[in-house]
Simulated assay, not measured.
Amino acid sequence: MRLIPVTLTCLLFVSCLFWPSLLIADERFQVQRVQAVEHIIEVRRQGTLAFLREYRRAFKTAGYVKALNVDVGQTFQQGDTLAQLDISELLQQRQRIQARLTFIGNELLRLNRLLDRKLVSPSSVESMQAEHDQLQAQLSELNYNINKSTIKADFDGVVLARQVNQDELVQPGQSALVVTPLRDNWVVEVTVSADERLGLKPGQKHRIYLPALDQEFSAPIRILAQSPITNSQLYRVALALPAKADFVKGLVAEVTFQLQRANVYPIPHQAIIRSHQGQAEIMLSQDDRYKTQKFAVLDMDERYSYLAAQQSTIQVVTNSWIAH
């Protein structure tokens, strides 16, 4: 019989210990009504101002550099002569070949007349014709080399590098100048992760800010790499910018990508009980009852975690930490 009072005493003790604490917790909970809102998920990356295309210009024939009309940093117009080889020897060689062709042409006329009268053998005509054809081929190649001894600008641009000097002997295909167009050629290059790349499409416009110039642009994606950079899990993205006189290659650019729009709950960080692997657990209030629930974390900033919304509104306990 003495066991019963002891048991009741223990139950009363436990009740006094826990029941009042739950009441106190309920009274101290701060509940906030949170409305689902549309949120633009942003990712900020740092990139650099660059040229989309750079071209190497080379002579197609060997020779000594006779003229260099541009240097690094100088601009040029379409049709300008940028560099030229000394072609005096080529011109002399062409003159000799043309003279020989004139002679052979006259000889062929004479031999054909004699052949009609059967005064010469056909082999004599064939031999002369073979030499004529060979010289014609040499003349065509020579004219090609003469035409390619000059580097002309095929667009308005600027010189990025000069790789030969005046009077230097160059070989066919040896790079002489690195040039780039000035129009439709400025981009900001940046890298993104595979997950971030999934939210991007060519032509999408995103915000670019150039701190050094205090200029802001809405720039479309011009290049979106299909494969990652070698030995990396990052993808190259190039956003097109209009040409500006004060642009300098290599300037730092701040890029803000707007990856997607989603309905979210903006939850203050102090309301998060715990978070793990992209999930955040919060305490909800419904009909004077409390429960914890997990939501996917889509984004966050200095004040809020943005959780994927499942309905229009929820009642969130913003100080649920007092119960733990």
Score class of each variant (00 low, 15 high):
residue 277 Q to L: 14
residue 96 R to I: 03
residue 4 I to P: 07
residue 15 S to A: 15
residue 131 E to S: 09
residue 300 M to N: 14
residue 296 A to C: 03
residue 72 V to D: 08
residue 279 Q to V: 01
residue 95 Q to N: 12
residue 226 Q to A: 11
residue 190 V to F: 06
residue 207 R to F: 12
residue 135 L to Y: 12
residue 83 A to I: 05
residue 59 F to S: 00
residue 59 F to Q: 00
residue 300 M to H: 15
residue 35 Q to I: 12
residue 37 V to Q: 14
residue 136 Q to R: 11
residue 267 I to T: 08
residue 284 L to G: 01
residue 215 Q to C: 03
residue 200 L to C: 08
residue 107 E to I: 05
residue 222 R to F: 03
residue 116 D to L: 07
residue 225 A to L: 03
residue 126 E to G: 00
residue 25 A to L: 09
residue 163 Q to V: 01
residue 199 G to E: 03
residue 56 R to T: 11
residue 193 S to R: 05
residue 25 A to Y: 13
residue 124 S to G: 00
residue 157 G to V: 03
residue 131 E to A: 03
residue 251 L to R: 06
residue 200 L to H: 08
residue 198 L to E: 10
residue 50 A to E: 15
residue 16 C to L: 14
residue 249 K to R: 14
residue 268 P to S: 08
residue 76 F to D: 06
residue 141 E to V: 12
residue 150 T to M: 05
residue 117 R to Y: 05
residue 236 R to K: 08
residue 48 T to Y: 15
residue 158 V to Y: 08
residue 147 N to F: 11
residue 43 V to Y: 06
residue 205 K to R: 13
residue 319 N to D: 04
residue 261 R to S: 15
residue 128 M to W: 07
residue 129 Q to D: 14
residue 235 Y to W: 07
residue 224 L to W: 02
residue 284 L to A: 00
residue 262 A to S: 12
residue 35 Q to M: 11
residue 132 H to C: 05
residue 83 A to S: 12
residue 13 F to L: 15
residue 300 M to L: 10
residue 183 R to D: 15
residue 140 S to P: 01
residue 232 S to K: 02
residue 281 E to K: 04
residue 121 S to P: 02
residue 68 L to R: 04
residue 272 I to Y: 02
residue 34 V to H: 00
residue 294 K to E: 08
residue 123 S to V: 09
residue 240 A to N: 10
residue 175 S to N: 12
